[in-house]
Design a protein around this nucleic acid. Structure first.
Lengths: 337, 337
DNA sequence: TTGAAAGCGCTACCAA
DNA sequence: TTGGTAGCGCTTTCAA
């Protein structure tokens, strides 16, 4: 059977309180006793139960992470970054794929609540912000990552979506493109909207513009959707010479469409993605894309969260953290030929 | 503050025992009381604490999943499959990226133990099987996924690696290749060895063989390593016309090398990968690869695990579960020109 | 410096 | 059917 604090105390001939103090490095225990107790713990292979500790009010050292789909490379990389930093700080992670399904979100939220996670990082869209209510009431700190904040109680850690859109536009303008189109995931996603806004605004400053008919969005199977939308765009008699896709998966779909229709990339068509996941480096040609600093974002989100949950009651100033993206130029963009 | 079972009992004018029974659907409670209690729980927004429940000996409904690196698409897909099924069955998942680092593995194992996870799924390599000792002693059921079993107490759920190697070989033979080479991750990984064994054995049955010098392995940055090793192979005066790579990442690296050296794929060189992650469908040309049935494996692993942990003491017959892989032929393989 | 004891929220057994 | 109550393993005063 699993050894308990009682076993250790008995073996060492002390009270459980003494053992507890030793475990937590608190109180005053003589060097002698302390070593004695340590060696008994060792001998019994004793591991304090975090469950029992949590019950007495201590934290659970567990963080929850909600993402739409962990098998999507972007979120896998987010999860990786978050887990890394959490581990670093002594926390472990419960990862939940929501499939963007409100029911599932609700179940997970309830579950995480029942497990008394210390904090929550949300990287999934949520149509129904109300779902966070119970958590917020219990003052579980929440951070949203790569998403606009969901409620005033949720601090966001974001990439500069607007700036990213600008970068993409600037790059394409420099290459001489004048007929540009946009493929987005869903206009319900704030980050998509911001990217597009940045893109368009930069173009307009140069006297260019993207006709509304050339902003295509929607779909859930991103790869497929990107391909389909690119097909539509490229089969028009007057077609764009450059595509700005709001994420890598869409960009890859567009790339496939271009090839299928016989367009060369980048000679006939330039494509810019967003995210800079591993996928972007693997396509042919490798994809020019706006890089999200995923590792930093994950790290920051965790640090902010832990800071929040360790500070005593003092409500923090709500602050937005925005990290600037970076354009990674590879081979999917070029001058018009 | 969070409502407890006491609050509910008080509000409803019953004992906590009654409430507990209602929560767990046990005992005999009159329809009337039951509804009364339910409505109070609703009103108070009461969520039973899983922590307290776990402390009294019930299970935690948490499973641990150990993988080398969640940002690797293969493991991300495994995690996704496992999580999906776990969620289905009412369990949640603590995901741990081990980086194949024994120290980290040990920390995680100890942590999961302290959190009293109900079961463990291991998808990471472990040099030091001893680390599992404490878990096994506490009879925490363990399943290894996509890995050879680590100990007699660990049931494996595997893909038919040997068969997968055979398939790759057969396919390449049919295309007329006679000079074949292999790029592997690490020969320490049993699945790599099996894949190679299947590959070689099938070739030998046809009177062909792979010289030892053409079996290259090692490295941790898989993409880079695949490229490097392919470079070596392709720059020899007598070079292979076909490459069998033990996973998709390596295959992609090889593909990049081929292109860099000016070889056309598949006209000058055929490449077969393994895993069939999303990466394989995104390269150009799309990669022919041996598909691991990741979704099934994940599902099976979870089901087996839950079966194991819900059965009362009766030790199960140790069994190996092997799921057959499938060759997905895309465009990276062709007849020699 | 040490130990006794009161919980933490819930389950389960035993009486009523 | 119901309720009283003894733990589960640990933390944390409060006395000694």
């Amino acid at each position: 059977m699993k050894a308990t604090i009682y076993d250790v105390a008995r073996e060492a001939g002390v009270s459980i309180a003494a053992v507890s103090q030793v475990i937590n490095g608190k109180g005053k225990i003589s060097e002698e006793r302390r070593n004695e107790i340590f060696s008994v713990m060792e001998r019994l292979n004793y591991r304090p139960s975090l469950i029992a500790a949590a019950l007495t009010g201590k934290s659970t050292y567990t963080l929850g992470l909600l993402v739409p789909d962990i098998s999507n490379p972007f979120f896998a990389e987010i999860a990786h970054a978050v887990e890394d930093q959490a581990h670093q700080r002594g926390y472990s992670l419960a990862i939940c794929s929501t499939h963007n399904d409100d029911e599932r979100i609700e179940r997970y939220l309830s579950l995480l609540q029942q497990k008394s996670v210390d904090g929550l990082i949300i990287g999934t869209g949520m149509d129904n912000v109300e779902l966070l209510g119970p958590l917020i009431e219990k003052s579980v700190p929440i951070i949203s990552i790569a998403r606009e904040t969901l409620s005033p109680h949720v601090l966001p850690v974001l990439v500069g979506d607007f700036a990213g859109g600008c970068m993409a536009a600037k790059h394409l303008i420099q290459l001489g493109h004048t007929r540009l189109a946009v493929i987005a995931e869903s206009l319900k996603v704030s980050s998509s909207r911001e990217r597009i806004r940045g893109f368009r605004q930069t173009l307009e400053a140069e006297g260019l513009n993207v006709p509304d008919a050339w902003v295509l969005a929607g779909g859930s199977d991103l790869l497929h959707e990107g391909k389909r939308n690119a097909m539509t765009l490229l089969q028009q008699t007057v077609r764009p010479t450059a595509l700005f896709c709001c994420n890598d998966l869409l960009a890859i779909g567009a790339l496939q469409a271009a090839k299928e229709l016989g367009f060369r990339v980048p000679e006939d068509l330039s494509i810019v993605g967003f995210d800079n996941t591993i996928l972007a480096s693997v396509t042919d040609p490798p994809m020019t894309t706006v890089a999200q600093p995923i590792a930093e974002m994950g790290k920051l989100a965790v640090n902010l969260l832990i800071e929040e949950l360790t500070k005593e009651g003092k409500s923090t100033i709500v602050q937005r953290t925005v990290i600037e993206p970076e354009l990674v130029v590879r081979k999917s963009t070029g001058t018009i030929s």
